[in-house]
């Protein structure tokens, strides 16, 4: 199974109620401590300040395995999130406000609370069914 199969798959509650579609798959990457990491790297990144290219300030981690944590389920599927609904960024006004309004009701459900993954006959689309008593967690990235 691929992540692409899960994306945009329809999500049903335990009582067959339609909850929306899978808008993203949340993963936990194991961050490996690198012994040869320059100790000042974090500080350099901060000192680089405004003039440095964005790529110099961006986070870059040595990673181990990547585990599936859960699914982000949105009541309205179409349209990009631009990442806004998962952080507390508020500018440039009014873009984040509009994007959040469109995607309000999006929640994170833990992978353990997924009861079934069903491949629909025909076009190869998938359907996700949640377990009874699933919890709607906030979608923000911590």
């Amino acid at each position: 199974m691929n992540v692409g199969d899960l994306l945009d798959a329809r999500v049903l509650g335990p009582d067959d109620a339609a909850l929306g579609v899978v808008v993203d798959v949340r993963l936990a990457l194991d961050v490996v401590e690198e012994p040869d990491d320059e100790p000042g790297e974090e500080e350099d990144r901060e000192e680089a300040g405004r003039d440095a290219p964005l790529s110099a300030q961006a986070r870059r981690d040595a990673v181990g395995s990547a585990r599936v944590v859960g699914l982000l389920v949105g009541p309205r599927g179409a349209g990009s999130f631009h990442g806004y609904e998962r952080t507390d960024v508020r500018s440039p006004w009014p873009i984040p406000q509009l994007v959040r309004r469109r995607h309000r009701g999006t929640f994170l459900v833990r992978w353990e609370e997924v009861a079934a993954l069903e491949e629909l006959p025909g076009d190869g689309a998938w359907r996700v069914r949640l377990a009874p008593g699933y919890t709607r967690l906030p979608p923000e990235l911590r």
Partner: peptide, 14 residues
């Protein structure tokens, strides 16, 4: 070992 949370579509695909 620490963990970093990413969203597949947002941080990896493409």
């Amino acid at each position: 070992m620490t963990e970093r949370l990413v969203d597949a579509r947002l941080h990896l695909l493409g």
